[in-house]
Amino acid sequence: MSLLDYFRTSKTSSASLAKERLQILVAYERSSSNQPSYLPQLQKELLVVIQKYVHINQDAMTINLEQSDNRETLELNIVLPDPHRV
């Protein structure tokens, strides 16, 4: 390996940057493609129901379906607004 190569590899190589970007993207795409197709619609309808009682906006709610070996967990996370401000 020449001296020039030494300096080149001491910086972050473009290949490792590529790998990092891919790992994040692929992990995200795998989790979203495994979700059942009714999930976005369910989220919309739940939001409408909740908004009848509490004023929250769309990004205050996240919905997630987790699959483990023998069970599925539907996780619903709603951030309620600060009660002092209402």
Binding site: R8, S13, S14, A15, S16, K19, L22, Q23, V26
Partner: peptide, 16 residues
């Protein structure tokens, strides 16, 4: 090119 860090290696691809 893998050696010089310009190309994803076999291991990189296989990790994904």
């Amino acid at each position: 090119r893998v050696k010089s860090g310009e190309m994803l290696s076999l291991d990189d691809v296989q990790e994904i």
